[in-house]
Computed example of a mutant assay.
Amino acid sequence: MEWQFERLVIPRDFTRSAVTRMLVERAEHGGWELDRLQLSPDGTRRIVLRRKIIRQRSTVYFGTLA
């Protein structure tokens, strides 16, 4: 399985509820899920999101022309 990653750095002046709303929005509409969250001593949040890369196979149709 292959994953696509997105890294975010969120400043300390964003509230916890604002960050939660943003992450929920990305999860519901973009298919992202939380991989890692690191809270630094200065209050900055470093977030890594991930989502599955879905490869579509090309389909070939060999039908009859009638």
Rank of each mutant, 00 (worst) to 15 (best):
D13F: 14
R7D: 10
R46M: 08
Q4W: 00
Q4I: 02
I10H: 04
T44K: 06
R21Y: 08
M1T: 15
V9W: 00
D42W: 05
R46Y: 13
R51F: 03
D35T: 05
G31Q: 03
E28K: 11
R16I: 04
L34A: 02
A18K: 11
E6R: 14
Q56L: 13
Q4T: 04
E25F: 10
Q56E: 12
V24S: 15
L8S: 04
R7N: 09
R36V: 07
R57D: 10
R46E: 12
R7A: 15
K52A: 14
S58P: 08
F62N: 15
L34V: 09
T15L: 05
I10C: 03
T64P: 11
F62W: 09
R16Q: 13
R16Y: 04
V9H: 00
Q38R: 15
H29F: 15
P11M: 01
R45K: 13
T20A: 13
A27C: 11
D42M: 04
H29M: 11
M1Q: 10
R16K: 13
K52I: 05
R45S: 09
L37P: 01
I10G: 03
R45F: 05
V9E: 12
L8T: 03
I10V: 15
R55S: 04
H29C: 12
Q4F: 01
R7I: 05
E2M: 08
L49K: 00
R36E: 11
T20K: 12
K52Q: 14
L34I: 07
I54W: 02
T64S: 11
E2N: 12
V19M: 02
E2S: 11
G43A: 09
R36W: 01
L65K: 11
T44R: 12
V60S: 12
S58E: 12
V9R: 08
R21L: 10
R26Q: 14
R46L: 12
K52D: 07
R21S: 15
A66P: 15
R51Y: 02
M22G: 12
A18E: 15
H29Y: 14
D13L: 07
Q4R: 03
A66I: 15
M22K: 14
L37V: 15
L8H: 01
E33Q: 09
L39A: 07
L65T: 08
I54H: 08
K52W: 05
T20Y: 10
L39P: 00
I54A: 08
V60K: 06
V9A: 11
Q38I: 13
V24I: 15
R12D: 09
W3T: 09
T15A: 02
V60A: 11
S17P: 02
L37K: 09
G63C: 06
H29I: 07
Q38P: 00
Y61A: 12
L49I: 01
R45H: 10
R36L: 07
V48P: 03
S40D: 13
D42G: 03
E25K: 14
M22I: 05
E2H: 06
T59H: 07
R16W: 05
T15E: 04
D13C: 01
P41W: 04
L65E: 12
R55C: 00
L8Y: 00
G31P: 06
D35E: 14
V60M: 06
V9Y: 00
S58R: 14
R7L: 07
Q56H: 09
E6F: 00
S40W: 13
D42S: 09
P41Y: 07
G43Q: 11
V60Q: 08
D13R: 06
L49Y: 01
G31H: 04
R26H: 10
